[in-house]
Design a protein around this nucleic acid. Structure first.
Lengths: 210, 210, 210, 210
DNA sequence: TATGAATGAGCGTTCATTCAT
DNA sequence: TATGAATGAACGCTCATTCAT
């Protein structure tokens, strides 16, 4: 009679948050549902009220994070800033995001492993493919805009986008392995430099920065 | 007794080979000792005669692979080829290696996950750090040589090396997620282009290619 | 307050009806309280307002069904029909009941299993014993009547009743296992034939059929 | 090197024996693998070395018991005894078997419940159908032989066999419910009487008993 | 040395039951 | 009274590891 309205979505998010913490601490296989429940301050059985099984919980967490990251990047939003500046903004933003929320990157790795090890399971591939696709699309749009204005030379925007994403992710991979290997701040600048060197018309290196 | 020692080493390699096959097929957690023993054509118990436990087996496999990869790259060997050419050789060689032996990359991913998830365990970090360090050192040496000869502009060779490795690894990461996203051959060329654009003296883009 | 009591009884019957549907579909162990509540269109917790626990619910359902079946057989009601005819009526009636409401038989089986597996729990034994006892009593009365009138030969009515029930139940058991094994209609006739052959005076097989 | 030959079949039988004990004590659902292992004096995991899962263990036990029972009945073996005598032998033999090994009957019940509750799963139906089919075939052959010799009247042997089996199983069902309801020995005789009354030529009740 | 049968800790998952509303 | 969210005991099953041979 008193149905006790409970925000199921809110609770789901609560569990996802706990799952994020646990998964990023120990990875998929070494995280237990019990640990996630404990982290969320709920009973083990409750987790199953919200997620069919461990795998589904992981997948939903992943989708959630991707959505979140895409939004964080402001992808899809209309842009009028100068292309080079916008590019720099995204690059530094991504670095910052990955850096301050390293746990997310852990989950990405975990996910990628599962992606590779489950060739038959399309979910992971699709999610990942989508993440990269969206990211590429956004960068390519900016590059294209830059080309229109004559700031960037003629090259395939999609390929350029692929390379840009590659550098960033590659840097993170090395950073994970050894945080003393280089100065992250300085690398950020160099990444920008390299990308600009690649994009800018070779004969005209004087593109206005904004 | 000498032949016996050789025998032991040989058998260890045999098991490592089997472990490589199995781990790269299904990842660490979803590979069983039983499967590895089967693959090696030996008994389950025998694995434990050569490796303390599953974790140790994995770690030794990893060290082995790193050693192997570094050797494959010809690292440490004296070089007299033109720096740009040598660089291209290494880049394409690495791409080729990763492409034709994708399974190794799977293990790298697995490893990296474990590296991230076991912050307290230094082994993985050290191994990974070493792999990158050696790789960086090699590339930096080539870059330095190129600078001496005036082909490359003044920049910190180590940082440049870091960036070069980053692009390559980043490309592989995207490739894993979606093999239809781009044409790998074309990307290889673009990677070389980008790196050269970054390394070469901006005012002099006419470096002889060999 | 009287209407409230009626309400309670009505709701109980509602739940029992739902339980019958669910239990007969999947058996005791594979039926869940949740499914029963859903079937009854009420909340899970409500079931517990009317029945102490799952076991009790099952037991009450069983008692209810037995009562129902005994009534269906018209047991206890005065009879004046010719004994042989009445017997045939009951036999065919029982077959028909079991056939058209096969689910009830499923519950009987389930029950019997529990009866056997819980030797210490007397409830099931008592219920079952009662069911058979009543059924036997009814049949024995008819047989006795037939003997009085000289239609049936001298034999112990209770034992004869036991045999009659046995054939019917035995047929159902085989029917469950393989519905292609025999033609049910034909078997019904044969059952009557056999029973009559057994009951009738051997030297006088010309008992008027009605 | 010393492969330690173990009679896997023997051990399987050992486990089946333990499973028989446990299942017949508590039924399928309330028996745990742990209990079976304990009963067999082995570790929990060992059970899984011999049986894929609980369901398979149960099915194999069932097949085994059926085989055993069919053999016990001497089914398939050439016969030259007088039909009526052979029939009596089988009937009493079956009663004796079921009586002395009541636990087997419990498993039959359990099985039948599962058979009914898993309409889609053909295994149980097939096994049960086979059990009855074989049993029917054997009885029908004897009846047919009796008919040839003029001892039994003209009736369909298969249908007669169906009825005979039915009485026996039906008796067991009542026996389980209430062991005080009747005197089993006496019932045995009556069962034989009824069956003979049914089979024998009505006008000639003087068939030599052997 | 080599083996694989045996083991049991540990985890995912289910579901009867409780209780705050 | 009615509800269904929350719970955790319990169980099936896996697999790294051990050890008798």
């Amino acid at each position: 009679m008193a149905p006790l309205i409970i925000d199921k979505e809110e609770k789901k998010r609560q569990i996802l948050k706990a799952a994020l913490a646990v998964f990023s601490r120990s990875g998929y296989h070494e995280s237990t549902i019990a640990a996630i429940a404990r982290e969320a301050g709920i009973g083990k059985g409750t987790v199953y009220e919200y997620f069919k099984d461990k795998e589904t919980l992981f997948m939903e967490l992943f989708s959630f994070l991707i959505e979140d990251h895409l939004q964080y990047l402001g992808i899809g939003k209309p842009e009028s800033i100068a292309p080079a500046k916008r590019l720099e903004e995204i690059i530094l933003g991504t670095f910052h995001a990955l850096g301050s929320m390293g746990h997310i990157y852990n989950i990405f790795l975990d996910l990628k492993t599962r992606c590779v090890n489950k060739t038959d399971d399309t979910f992971y591939h699709e999610q990942f493919a989508r993440l990269y696709r969206e990211f590429r699309r956004e960068l390519a749009a900016i590059i294209h805009a830059g080309q229109q204005r004559g700031f960037f030379r003629a090259l395939h925007p999609d390929i350029a986008a692929t390379l840009i994403i590659a550098v960033m992710e590659g840097i993170m991979n090395q950073w994970i392995a050894d945080q003393n290997a280089f100065d992250m701040e300085r690398i950020h600048d160099e990444v920008c430099t390299m990308i600009m060197a690649y994009l800018r018309s070779p004969h005209d290196s004087n593109e206005p920065h904004a």
